[in-house]
Write a protein that binds this DNA or RNA. Structure first.
Lengths: 219, 219
DNA sequence: ATTTTACAGGGTGAAAACAGCTTTTTTATA
DNA sequence: TATAAAAAAGCTGTTTTCACCCTGTAAAAT
């Protein structure tokens, strides 16, 4: 690992002391060069020089003006080659998954040791991502949670109502749905009314949104 | 690790020789006990005894009658405590992400060494999941890919059309949308028509579906 | 034995959505 | 600055959706 070239990085964090501290720590090493630091995403954007880009940006989450999620998304849009390593004090699921979804290639706690930070930076450069125990479990769960998760309202619905709801998520008119289900349009009216009542909705759009939110249909 | 109790597992794979081979390999160890094996998901369901469940099930993907995805989903629904370890010859993104999304706690290639398989089984039992290099990169990318990905049609749309499209994904009537956007209902009619034409749709439901498919709104 | 619940069918009127036009205003740019 | 292309607004219909009203049957529940 020591034979690697010097990695140019940047630090984005609103706590000046922390920012300078990390910069100072890393400056002592000859594997890493801190190109610049910024107190938030907007400052980062202004300091980014297209002809001298960092390879990795250490990114805090909570920051004024432009936070870590927004900043990371902006980077992925404008400089997708720059790797973002989230550096935060939060160990909850939401910020971790949020930063990963925003495009971060890794997530590290601020209480980590310097050595871990260096390894993370190098891993991100060499392998494109850095996963530690903190992230991997949450990550796998977040992908899976998309799947299961059932709402209680759904149990109130009969098979035919579910079938009807599914057909609502198409460009078929109610009359056409009646045709497909071999029912009278009036019966379809009943289904619609029943669903509106059960789900507390008032339009077909509402039905579609409900069906999608509850993964009754695949988008 | 050697102080762990004996782990009861099951093997589901349509290749009899492979199934028996793995069973024989693992039977020689005293960390793992193979409770039963099955050629597909249906057979597995029949052989599952609620009073003697395996902790881990090694799951092939391609199988007749009921494949690995379906089987894993069934397990997660009916016996969520059983961990599924996908065991397959495919190293492509789709099957890996697919199995994880179906609920698998890990993914291992069939060409892996016995020792790796044992470690994977133990890791799944002790930590709830097993991530190797094969999976982690794809996983992080699959979560992120959900995000970006833009359709060419979207570029054809103006800001106001996008705003209108967003408002369509609610229970607001067109008249109410006109109010929110400070426009005449007739202008809203124009937007609708334009979008129908540009996106080749013919109903509001179609608009909603399009917006969701292209992640223009968060569900 | 009676009530409840789910399912199927029917009708009316009002509101909203859809379709096809024309005209005016704004914006961009050649 | 002329002009083309958008965005915005208007009009006139038709169709669809929505919100009520209702009857009847069959299966569960009380």
């Amino acid at each position: 690992m020591q034979q690697d070239k010097i990695i140019p990085i940047a630090i984005v964090d609103d706590h000046t002391l922390f920012r300078n501290g990390v910069a100072s720590l890393l400056s002592e090493l000859n594997e890493i060069e801190v190109m610049f630091d910024a107190a938030n995403g907007e400052e980062m954007i202004n300091k980014l020089a297209p002809d001298a880009l960092p390879e990795v940006i250490l990114m805090d989450i909570t920051m004024p003006v432009m936070n870590g999620y927004e900043s990371t998304q902006w980077l992925k849009k404008n400089y997708p080659q720059i790797k973002v390593l989230a550096l935060s004090m939060f160990e909850e699921d939401a910020p971790i998954i949020g930063m990963i979804k925003s495009g971060a290639s890794g997530y590290l706690l601020k209480e980590s040791k310097t050595a871990d930070l260096v390894i993370a930076i190098q891993t991100v450069v060499n392998h494109g991502f850095y996963l530690n125990n903190l992230v991997s479990g949450k990550l796998i769960r977040s992908v899976q949670d998309d799947q299961l998760e059932t709402k209680r309202e759904i149990n109130q619905l009969s098979d035919r109502e579910l079938k009807f709801l599914e057909l609502c998520c198409s460009e078929l008119t109610y009359k056409e749905i009646a045709g497909v289900m071999n029912l009278s349009p009036h019966t379809i009216d009943n289904y619609r009314e029943t669903l509106f009542q059960k789900l507390e909705l008032k339009s077909r759009t509402g039905l579609v949104l409900f069906a999608i939110k509850n993964k009754l249909i695949k988008v």
